[in-house]
Nucleic acid binder design. Sequence first.
DNA 1: GCATAAAATGAATGCATGTCCATAAATTTG
DNA 2: CAAATTTATGGACATGCATTCATTTTATGC
Lengths: 245, 245
Amino acid sequence: MDGRSDHSNYRADNKVNSTQNLQSGDRQPRRYSSEESRRLLIEATLDSIVEVGFSSTSVSEIVTRANLSRGMVHLYFDNKDALLVAAARHSAEVYYGTLSEQLETAGSSPQEILETIILGDLGEELLNERTIKIWFAFRGEAHANGAIAQYSDTRDDYLRDLIFKAFAEIAAAQKMSEPEKVARDATHGTLALLEGMWTDYLLHHDSFSRASAARIIFRFLSALFPRHFNLDGASAAKNQPCTSS
Amino acid sequence: MDGRSDHSNYRADNKVNSTQNLQSGDRQPRRYSSEESRRLLIEATLDSIVEVGFSSTSVSEIVTRANLSRGMVHLYFDNKDALLVAAARHSAEVYYGTLSEQLETAGSSPQEILETIILGDLGEELLNERTIKIWFAFRGEAHANGAIAQYSDTRDDYLRDLIFKAFAEIAAAQKMSEPEKVARDATHGTLALLEGMWTDYLLHHDSFSRASAARIIFRFLSALFPRHFNLDGASAAKNQPCTSS
DNA sequence: GCATAAAATGAATGCATGTCCATAAATTTG
DNA sequence: CAAATTTATGGACATGCATTCATTTTATGC
């Protein structure tokens, strides 16, 4: 009838009928799961941001990468912007999820908590070529899109509080004057150092070294809290008891 | 003849004839200086990035803000991309120009140099709502545009070297073991702290305090070099002679 | 004050974009 | 197995985009 009857051709050429078994590896099989399509679109969005940049990430780019049709974006998201926000949100969730996992298997001393956060934040899983591009792409657009801004901060109140409590305990044990002020500054400074290392990774990717970044942070911390840190991290926690009691 | 004869209408309504004296303040007068038009386009580009974001910065946005016609962009720049690169370059030049000025009027002791850089980098002139949006917008696009990447780093080799030499002198005066290594780490750490404070300003603009940011950096530095820094900066340089001789 | 060059204009072009929607296939339900 | 529902498609549309260029205005040289 109309020129659209080649839908079925396309389907026959490129897709198979069942979710379970796919044959022609050319394209992905039909999915028939809205959750999976949503995830595919989000992943394709992030892929596009990584490979061609935020401003070249169009709906066409996204659906091509996801091997889906144009309409899908507006079937699962209100509009392109909502998809971008969902992608930002997804990235933030992955970041916190991964860090939380790592914290669960870590020790509970303040030094070990801090070491886990620092090494985790600088580790391959959270800081790599893909994630750094995504984070900075979103941050670059954050001020023009409030919803994205909400998810473009990796250092939220929960994490900040965790770090502060750890430093507060250490500062108290070290019997410093104004331990709370010291802990507050140490928290702010450590987060700034981590952010700075991320920026360094973005801008000087070739010369960046995770080991150096960690050593530098621990050097600053061991200068502030000599009895609790050394250049290799929170080794004081392992070698000697450090709580004041 | 053709519909274009209303050029003169537009001119008569909105412009005046002389470069020297403008009368109707409605629009800018004709300029007749290519340099000035270039600058206007660059400034308009930066304005647009600040106000509507990088991905909404179109040629139309730019020429409207500059009160120039569409064709001007391609008269003075090869294309839109070249204009964006020129804008990034301009921003970098302003950053270094301002910092260099401040360094010229500063003292020459290593502490004073470091204090000048730190306070300058965190000062209103270099770090404000406009500049932070511009820097992060460019950084967000940097990985998709090599030419922009070139100008999106505020911490280049010259500045890094200046900081390193200052720390090396301090470390030597303090007779530390491995003074060069310490100086290298202090340089990297200080730059990371500054970058982190910029990120903090971007993401938590409301709660950001320049004084706190500076105090935190000096707290870290005074822990590393207790004889040369205190919480207010490099006051050791003013109160007591600090060179080892 | 005329000729020439420089500066500036904005309509026109073609292409890419985000969104919509009529259609169709796959799956589930009754 | 038919009806209803869910999942998926891609052509069509209006809009906006970067870019081009014939034309006009202003400035400069002679």
